[in-house]
Amino acid sequence: MLVFEKNAMTEEIEQLVAKYGNNRSSLLPILQDVQRMHKHIPDFAQQEVARLLGIHPVEVYSVITFYSFLNTQPKGRNIVRLCQTIACDLFGKKSVVKAVERELGITFGETTKDGKFTLEYVNCLGMCDQGPVLLINERVYSKVTPEKAIQILGGVK
């Protein structure tokens, strides 16, 4: 990271600490915001959060690794999550997987070369009556077919 990037990051985290409060209970909301803005939580951000909350950086790292929506390595700009649980599985998850993988040229768990998409599986998204279900960033798409999935991805910036 360049120095000015570091400074910007420090400032950003200082603001988040001010917003959520300088205590351990604020850790997750702070990390969630960093994650949202940068699509991951870089090492330097972890150190800064630890320093400002007065906890050990290992504690921060340990919390990040516990939650599947937080990650320390960069991911694509758009995170495409497909429900892998049984109700969606019964109604065509597999064919959606095939179509999406073919179209983007990557498999689940990977990020496209241009950094636009990361494909991931998730567990039940609470839309089991309308499966298969896709969660793209924060938006849900239900009753997805292979064709519809590709159309949806085409509409993502």
């Binding site: 205590n23 351990r24 209970s25 604020s26 850790l27 997750l28 990390l31 969630q32 340990s62 919390v63 516990f66 939650y67 599947s68 929506f69 937080l70 998730v122 567990n123």
Partner: peptide, 21 residues
């Protein structure tokens, strides 16, 4: 942040306190 076990009430509380769930 995507952890099923955080629905368990004590894990939920741990999570609110800024810990692993």
């Amino acid at each position: 942040s995507g952890a099923y076990v955080c629905g368990e009430e004590t894990a939920l509380i741990e999570s609110l306190e800024g810990n692993r769930g």
